[in-house]
Structure formats: structure tokens, C-alpha cells
Design a protein around this nucleic acid. Sequence first.
DNA 1: TCTGGGGTCCTAGGACCC
DNA 2: TCTGGGGTCCTAGGACCC
Length: 338
Amino acid sequence: MWILHVDMDAFVASVELRRHPELVGQPIAVGGRGDPQQARMVVMSASYEARALGIHAGLPLRRAVRKVPELVVVPVDQAEYLAASAEILQALREFPMPIEPWGLEEFFLSTDRADPEDLALELQASVLADTRLVCTVGIGENKLQAKMATRHAKPARIFKITRENWPLLMDHRPAGDLWGIGERTAEKLAELGIGTIAELGAADEAMMAKRFGPTIGPRLARMGRGEGDTEIVTEPQQAKSRSHAVTYPEDLTERAEIAARVEGLARDLATSVIADGRQVVRVAVTVRNAGFFTKTLPLKLPEVSTDPELVASHALLVLEKFPLDRPVRLLGVRVDLA
DNA sequence: TCTGGGGTCCTAGGACCC
DNA sequence: TCTGGGGTCCTAGGACCC
């Protein structure tokens, strides 16, 4: 059995180019609400033309346009990306195989076919024909191998990683290159003398369990050897939480205004999830202050609720636990769902 | 010329009960 | 005149991903 990882190329930027064909060939960045001079906004996605000029996700918009004055900045339109993702899923469903969406722009598939490369070509052609969007396909014996293969194949190509070529391709690379190992874990591994993927694969699992916990520790060691999940979860998973956060162009300093914003965010979010037939079990409030210090505090509701006002009032209770002694840059609310 | 927004999973530790 | 050990719920926080 093979796992295929379908990953859309410059997904958000490509969706925007699809509906703005006059911009094709120009460097474009998607981010913010349409004003590239808006403070505190960053690039969400950049076209390959923009990437060639040094524009990348996470770059502040104002810095991006200073760097590339001819950069075209397009506002974020989440609903459009959601719709495009559904189109891609529909194109993939023409193939009789299990499919697991992974975020909006990635999909894992499994197949018993003996010619996964041919299948990958068919998938690419079909997605392009149906959606006018380009994807890369990674092939592996599990999700980790397939995901790492995709990186070798970007953009628009196909690559296969198996237990045979894993050591040659991966052993010498830093452990932090692996999908699932971020900066913090890479630092902790370095403290243990583990720098490369080969060293991670050779690590003692009992020692790893002691350092990282019984679940994560041994899993990290297995990842170093290229071992991973093969299960494709085709059932659409019910969302476990929904959240909304806003970074304000200028800091909020008045407690009354902060409270009013939190209350509004909570009420709107609760109203939306309840309209979708869900129940709220917990509400959490996030405050990021001017120093970028960020804290989230949760609170369980007295009972499962479908009352936006109850959610809003509990969000305010949570807010009271914050000192609010510094100007506030971001407020967020999350609801955990039954 | 600082640092978006939306998610998931895992762990540690305290409270409480038997 | 001593104070085990397991289970469960909850909070708080860490880490990672796209």
C-alpha cells in the first residue's frame, strides 16, 4: 500500500491569481485587509514570482512592499479558500480511494495500486483540469515519508520516499527538518546531543520517553527512522473548537473597551457555532499585550450551553483574571465544543 | 520600521474520590 | 500519632502545523 500526499502549490496566492488572471506573472502577496500600509499585518501566501524576490509567509506587509515596491497585495478572503479546497476534494474524489483532508490545501490518500507515480500524474492532471490549480504529490509507505517526499518535489512534481532511500535522503539532515519537529523540540534534542535525523533514529526509546513523555518520546525516535502513520481518516471530523482573534491596528488601553471587545467576540463566535448546531463546553480568552506576551486562560461552563449570552458572560469572567496592566495588541476567544 | 489567524494534540500537576 | 495508590476531572501551558 502507498500513501500519497497531495499539496497545493502556493495555494492561497494561486486561488487569487485564478480569479485575477490579469495579475498572472506579477509578484503577488496575499495578506491583511487590502491596505499594504496597514500596520501589524503579514504575508499569508506569496506567488512564486514574489518568492523569487524574497517575499515569504509571515513577512510584515509593510516590509514586503518596501522590499518589492511593485508587489501586488491582495486582501485575505478565507471563504474563497474554503470553496477552492472543496473543489479540490471533489476532483480527488473522482478516484476510488480513501482521502483525508489535512487543512485546506493538503490531502493524504492511500492506494493499493502498484504504480503510484502514474496515479500521482493522473491526480495532478485531474486537479489541474477541474480547478486550474497546480499541486505537488509526495509518495511514501506512510504519511511521514509522503510528506517529506512532497518537499523534494515542490513545485508541481512527484517524488517517492521509501525505507530504501530514506537514509540516503534524510540521515544527514537536521532533525528539525522532519514534519512534526519544530524549533523547541530541535533545541531539546540538541541538548541531548541529537542533531541529525540518523541520530534521532538511533536514540534510545526509554531515554526519549523520559525526556519527552511516553507518547511523544518514542514517536520522535521512530520518526528519525522514517516510520509513521498509515491510517487515512476519511470521515470528516467534527471540529473540537473554534476561535477568532483580532490584532488591532492600535493598542487598546481602556479596560471597558477591552471588555466590550471580548464580549462581542465571544457572543459572535458562540452565535455562529450554535447556528451550526454545536454546543459550547468551555470558553477561553487570549490576550496578547504590546510586548507580544501572549496568554490564554480557559474556563469550563457550568453546563453545556447553546446560549451566546452565557458564553459571553463567562468570557468576561475569564478576562477578569488578566491583570490588563499593559496595552493590548490582540484579543481572541476560543470555544471548545461538545 | 518587528512579529496574522485558525486549528490539534500532549503533558504536568492539583483536586478530589475511593 | 500513620499518610499508599489508582482513577478521573480540570486547569494551564507547551508545541506544532498550515
